[in-house]
């Protein structure tokens, strides 16, 4: 039980990604579908993986097995699926299905008992149709399957980090025994598209994307630039405000003189 001591002042995190990929079913595959799923158009895989991609891998992320700290991932699919709650107790933590529509997947991550942590819940919007810049329009019009098929598999991945505060010594030992594979420094493959960064659409095309450190850096720069813009605006307003104050003073003086 000596191991059940929290190591104070330590915050340790593990990067991971969650999301899905989707491909349009070919006519042959479609014909193999059971009767109940005849109208399905896509095959998709929703997954929770480590952030870094393995070398020579055609999937996004998953360089490390996460089962050293994740005991179970349960995916709650749309209730029209059979057994909508799918529990996955060993890597890869993923569920593959066919379907025709997008929906919100609830992902519950259970940690290993050593962690002493509760389940965390996150949501992922299952993405089947290719990314477009006109978000609103895209919602309304589902592109024809032929067009979708041409643009290749659709990827929708969210990078995130699970943060543990003051972990138990035993759990800390487990975590430090499995340092995560660092993200590659530079872009080698397409950038995973993210709705928060529409400009990355072009860079996301052409193959399996990969998370890199340059993405973080790039976003940091964008935030910095925005901050600079705001600061500039602040300066401008400051000047303007000073002018107005002076004018107001002047007016007050005039009023005082009149009265």
């Amino acid at each position: 039980m000596a191991e059940r001591i929290r190591v104070r002042g330590v915050t340790i995190h593990r990067p991971l990604i969650y999301g899905n990929n989707a491909v349009v079913l070919t006519p042959e595959e479609k014909s193999l579908l059971p009767v109940a799923a005849k109208d399905h158009t896509h095959r998709w895989t929703v997954a929770v993986r480590s952030a870094a991609s393995a070398n020579d891998s055609d999937i996004v992320g998953g360089a490390d097995d996460l089962n050293y700290f994740i005991k179970r991932v349960s995916f709650k699919l749309h209730e029209t699926y059979q057994n909508p709650t799918r529990n996955v107790d060993k890597p890869p933590f993923e569920v593959s299905e066919t379907g025709w529509g997008e929906f919100e997947v609830q992902i519950r991550i259970t940690f290993v008992p050593e962690s002493g942590e509760k389940v965390i819940v996150l949501y992922h919007h299952l993405k089947l149709h290719p990314w477009t810049l006109q978000v609103a329009a895209e919602e309304a019009v589902n592109p024809a399957p032929e067009i979708s098929a041409k643009s290749g598999p659709v990827h929708s991945w969210q990078y995130d980090e699970i943060v543990f505060h003051d972990p138990f010594q035993s759990f800390l030992n487990i975590l430090t025994a499995h340092p995560p594979t660092p993200l590659p420094k530079n872009k080698r493959k397409p950038v995973p598209f993210h709705i928060s960064h529409p400009a990355s659409l072009e860079a996301s095309k052409g193959g399996t994307p990969e998370f890199t450190m340059s993405m973080e850096k790039e976003e940091g720069e964008r935030l910095e630039a925005a901050k600079k813009q705001v600061h500039a605006e602040q300066e401008k307003l400051k000047g303007l405000l000073a002018e107005k104050e002076a004018e107001l003073q002047q007016l007050h003086k005039q009023i005082a003189e009149q009265s």
């Binding site: 995190h13 990078y159 709705i195 973080e216 976003e219």
Partner: peptide
């Protein structure tokens, strides 16, 4: 206006 989505980040790292 700044084209920043402040509710979601691509890479929600500590620095970002």
């Amino acid at each position: 206006e700044l084209q920043i989505s402040h509710t979601r980040l691509v890479m929600p790292t500590r620095a970002n």
